[in-house]
Nucleic acid binder design. Structure first.
Lengths: 108, 108
DNA sequence: ACAATGTATAAGCATTTGCTTATATATCTG
DNA sequence: CAGATATATAAGCAAATGCTTATACATTGT
């Protein structure tokens, strides 16, 4: 069952390109400290911090404090509302299913 | 390949609950005239009209003029940017793959 | 031709958003 | 302890967003 509010929260959070880029970097790099995300970013440290809060609130990332470092990593279940919602529209991306089947074979 | 701008556009467009509800109704009901969407909605006719424009601009729906009626239907490829983007994060919703496999069997 | 209907657009407005600078609050290090 | 480092929060602001009412513009029916 899809929880409207969660879906809205996840979509709104990922809709912003800067914030989505932060999410993508965390996903790619595994566990990253906030500082690592600030470096190589165009926006300020507070901006990144605010984006991280948004990602946390949406359940998309989790944090692990270690001294003065705050390490972020992707929360696997965070994308579930989006995946589930798209599942309801599979008829509309039916052509894509072939590609997905290939992916499934890979993961076997 | 994922086109950033398109993905942002699709996500931003679907992130709004009212607009997403409009999209969902079009998907469910097939081809609907704008009036049909206004009825049963809480917002005004112009609001619906503006949401339809946004959905059109994002490539999520298409329109067919017939006299003074404007019929809307879902554009299958519209969700592709979202599906493709999620495909890159399949490792993070791996648990969901079982469910997807079931879906795939259904569609065979 | 005239009124009614279906739809889009314009203008205005309150709210939300994403950023900035400035400032806290911890923690580590010499 | 004092300074440096890592991070978060507060305050302020311009831009974007989603809605409203008012109005325009076709098309249809009488």
């Amino acid at each position: 069952m899809i929880v409207e509010a969660q879906l809205t929260s996840v979509m709104k959070t990922l809709a912003d390109p800067t914030r989505r880029a932060v999410f993508e970097r965390i996903a790619r790099e595994g566990e990253v400290a906030a500082t690592g995300l600030v470096k190589g970013s165009r926006v300020s440290q507070p901006a990144i911090s605010q984006h991280l809060k948004a990602l946390r609130d949406a359940g998309l990332v989790s944090e692990r404090r270690d001294g003065r470092h705050n390490y972020y990593s992707v929360t696997p279940k965070g994308l579930a509302p989006l995946v589930d919602w798209l599942g309801h529209y599979r008829a509309f991306w039916h052509e894509r299913i072939a590609g997905l089947e290939a992916l499934l074979k890979e993961t076997e």
